[in-house]
């Protein structure tokens, strides 16, 4: 026993200034690592969460795609930027589920009683989900090219498009963190997410042209965030005017973080 309680070190006092920031970054890194290990330790979840976007690619490419005509380009070229947007939007559910689970299992309670940065639980979750989204986006890139997607611009524009999508994914994670911290358990978090996700992803320009939708839907479908990021990614990957779409998409991403991240932080303090 003397090994444990033999020497008592002086009390750890939390530092100020740069050292404090270094602690916060180290805490976030620790929580990110923990969250990523959690994803890796459930290979079934990892497998099926990668299969789902691939299914969407195949479904729209080979089942619905034949019936959808897009002027000026092939449907698969039109589809892939939309699939990216839809996939990262659906991926945000895992932020909600992850936080709800941690609350439910008492992990967050334990974190609160540790001398770690308050911000690390939420930031560690959203950053881990960003890393996960990078992997998912790479998988979709591979599958997209395999089913016939052809870049009509250049690699730099394509990468800019992916970065825009990842920024959107990160901001949406903060939004869904609010749901995760509100839901009583992970199942409810998931159920609460879908009524938000379905209109956002399907009443958007991700799969079909908004022009084909009824007039009353245009106002929503043209300007909502998934359409904005789809249009921006599409313009960057297929060509055409980009500035306005990119601006809209960045504005949405920044706006969501500015409004919902403080709400998530407040919920976290009270949860």
């Amino acid at each position: 026993m003397s090994t444990v309680a033999g020497t008592i070190p002086p009390a750890v006092v939390s530092p100020r200034g740069p050292a404090r920031l270094r602690w916060a970054i180290s805490d976030i890194a620790t929580v990110v690592q923990r969250n990523l290990l959690n994803y890796l330790r459930i290979p079934e979840a990892l497998f099926f969460s990668s299969v789902q976007p691939i299914m969407f690619v195949l479904l729209f490419r080979y089942v619905f795609g034949g019936a959808i005509k897009i002027p000026g380009t092939s449907y698969v070229n039109y589809l892939i930027p939309g699939i990216f947007a839809q996939t990262v939007a659906f991926g945000a559910v895992s932020t909600a589920i992850g936080l709800a689970e941690d609350l439910q299992r008492g992990i967050i309670e334990r974190f609160r009683a540790l001398p770690m940065a308050r911000s690390a639980v939420l930031a560690g979750r959203t950053v881990a989900d960003l890393v996960r989204n990078v992997v998912v986006v790479l998988i979709i890139t591979g599958v997209g090219f395999a089913v016939g997607f052809r870049l009509q611009t250049n690699a730099a524009a394509f990468i800019a498009g992916l970065l825009l999508l990842l920024l959107f994914a990160f901001s949406l994670s903060w939004g869904f963190a609010v749901i995760g911290l509100t839901a009583p358990n992970s199942e409810t978090a998931q159920v609460m997410s879908f009524p938000i996700l379905f209109p956002l992803t399907f009443a958007s320009s991700a799969f079909v042209s908004v022009q084909s939708m009824p007039q009353w839907l245009h106002g929503f479908a043209d300007y909502q965030p998934v359409s904005a990021v789809t249009n921006a990614a599409r313009a960057l990957m297929l060509g055409g005017p980009t500035a306005s779409y990119v601006l809209q998409s960045v504005a949405w991403s920044v706006g969501i973080v500015v409004v919902l991240a403080p709400l998530a932080v407040r919920k976290y303090r009270r949860a």
Binding site: R34, L37, R41, I42, R105, G106, E109, R110
Partner: peptide, 10 residues
């Protein structure tokens, strides 16, 4: 604590 708040997957 009574809930043994350790991480299941680690």
């Amino acid at each position: 604590g009574q809930y043994a708040a350790v991480d299941e997957n680690l």
